[in-house]
Design a binder for these strands. Structure first.
Ligand SMILES: [Mn+2]
Ligand SMILES: [Mn+2]
Ligand SMILES: [Zn+2]
Ligand SMILES: [Zn+2]
Lengths: 137, 137
DNA sequence: ACAATAAATAGTAATAATTACGATTTATAT
DNA sequence: ATATAAATCGTAATTATTACTATTTATTGT
């Protein structure tokens, strides 16, 4: 996923291409890590001082629906990052301080031997947490 | 973990053994599934109509510290359940509606081949989500 | 049993993230 | 340029969680 493809997706699905959306997409492309709604506000407040959370959350939600962003929940807070360019399903090692990630290649679902048929499965989550080298120093 | 051992732990660590704590521990022993603070309140409100969230959250937190309960976060809400009797570290398949769980034997951390040394690892989470047979009917 | 003490609790307020809403502005197509 | 529907702002509502103070209560030692 890159900015140009994200913009294309937006327009194809009938969403308007606004300056705020442009900057949000560019922010995630630049940062390549998990960001909270508040962090988005902080990054964009020089360009858009009055940017409302209604706008931020609505756009984040649209981006997730379109597959542009992926979402997780860390410590009671929703966090968002650009969907990884790798087309293959995978998981992440995540820095709890700055949201930086590293890819984990294998998905543990493939190796689960437990019988899952009693439940109607809808998803799974595998994340490893820690602090990156910048955040431990 | 069972109620008697939990009570023993509480007293050993200098916590008072109150009626509210007794009922909370018994509730988790009976239900054997993830419950939210609100659900605890609902279950106990016949016995303790004015039970405050301060009390509920404080006791939940103490129980987690003592290893009596384990905690996870589902859909932005903290959920608690009795620590599984199996001494072995493991993970769960969880019903998103009622909190019922099934144990998954293997821990995916053992099979991770990715180099994790760039991060100082503090924990991990592996959960499979779905709906149990009672909740899909 | 009684009194002293520190912990636990109730009642309520504060905090924080997220969602919702009506009025206004703006991107886009005609 | 105009029309139209979507996007945004400013603000309020909602929800889970945490915090505070006065009061109550479990525990300990007498
Ligand atoms: Mn990735
Ligand atoms: Mn278990
Ligand atoms: Zn970091
Ligand atoms: Zn269920």
């Amino acid at each position: 996923m890159d900015v140009l493809r994200a913009i294309k997706l937006l327009k194809e699905e009938g969403y308007k291409y606004t300056d705020k959306r442009k900057h949000m997409l560019q922010l995630f492309a630049d940062e390549k890590r998990y960001l909270s709604a508040r962090e988005v506000q902080e990054f964009l407040k020089t360009n858009f001082p009055g940017l409302s959370f209604d706008t931020i959350y609505r756009n984040l939600s649209i981006f997730v629906d379109l597959g542009i962003l992926e979402e997780t929940e860390l410590d009671g807070e929703k966090k968002f990052r650009y969907t990884c360019p790798s087309g293959k399903h995978h998981h992440h090692l995540i820095c709890l301080k700055c949201g930086k990630t590293k890819e984990i290649d294998a998905c543990p679902m493939e190796k689960v031997t437990t019988d899952l048929s009693e439940f109607q499965i809808t998803g799974h989550k595998f994340e490893i947490y820690g602090y990156c080298s910048q955040c431990t120093a």
